[in-house]
């Protein structure tokens, strides 16, 4: 028993558990033909949560090890400039429609989520945590904090939204007959932030680059727009 306590207290173990679980679930997902329903992120975090609950480990203890992966989100966000630059010519030609699509998408995302949740009597804390759900985690956490929601709930809802986006997008593209890589990537970035962007890279580097652009634009725009929208809807 004492050994186990000592063992789990080591941050390194949670780092190893996280990476191993992710490699295993990615392999499993590929074997199943890459279905987004069993997205490696969702399966990994479910398995890790179950494992933490079974071993009676707190999230804080887990995060001591996992923070080293979490930290890489920063440089990875900066690195999005590279594929963006590679496709800069294309971005320049479409700049105005991209800005319009991003603003319309971001407002649709926040307003429709708030209205549906409000209609179903969700608590105010939940509402304010749902509002930034289409925005990349680090921005969503900042927004939820400012509005008075729960930052860690917001970051969880952001991830679930990401998975939902990856599940719905291919079907919606088929129905609407969307074939352009740039459109597919950008739409995934607006609606499903970093997870959508990661998924868009599977369509190709250009889709990924547009996803990254969309993620950055949507995040920045939502950070300014949401406080106005929340007071307009009379929440909080």
């Amino acid at each position: 028993m004492e050994f186990w306590v000592f063992f789990t207290a080591k941050p390194l173990m949670w780092l190893i558990v996280t990476i191993m679980t992710f490699i295993a679930t990615s392999w499993f997902n590929r074997r199943l033909g890459g279905t987004p329903l069993l997205h490696p992120v969702l399966v990994s975090l479910s398995l890790i949560i179950v494992f933490l609950l079974l071993t009676g480990t707190s999230y804080e203890t887990y995060f001591e090890g996992a923070q080293f992966i979490h930290f890489l989100l920063g440089p990875a966000t900066v690195a999005l400039a590279v594929p963006l630059f590679d496709h800069f010519e294309r971005v320049k030609k479409m700049l105005l429609p991209l800005i319009v699509a991003c603003m319309a998408g971001a407002i649709t995302a926040a307003a429709s989520a708030l209205l549906v949740a409000q209609a179903l009597d969700a608590s105010v804390g939940t509402l304010l945590s749902i509002a930034p759900k289409s925005v990349t985690s680090p921005i969503a956490i900042g927004i939820a904090e400012k509005l008075g929601g729960y930052p860690s709930l917001a970051s969880g809802l952001v991830l679930i939204t990401g998975a939902i986006g990856c599940v719905l997008a291919p079907a919606i593209y088929r129905i609407l007959n969307i074939t352009d890589e740039a459109v597919k990537g950008f739409t995934l970035g607006v609606s499903a932030h970093g997870m959508g962007t990661a998924y868009a890279f599977e369509y190709g580097l250009m889709a990924g680059a547009f996803g990254g652009l969309a993620m950055g634009m949507t995040g920045a725009f939502t950070a300014f727009m949401l406080p106005l929208l929340v007071s307009l809807l009379g929440i909080g």
């Binding site: 997205h39 887990y62 995060f63």
Partner: peptide, 13 residues
């Protein structure tokens, strides 16, 4: 990129 979202996601617990 996808791996990097796992630690924050576990925070749902």
């Amino acid at each position: 990129l996808a791996l990097l979202f796992v630690p924050a996601g576990v925070g749902l617990m």
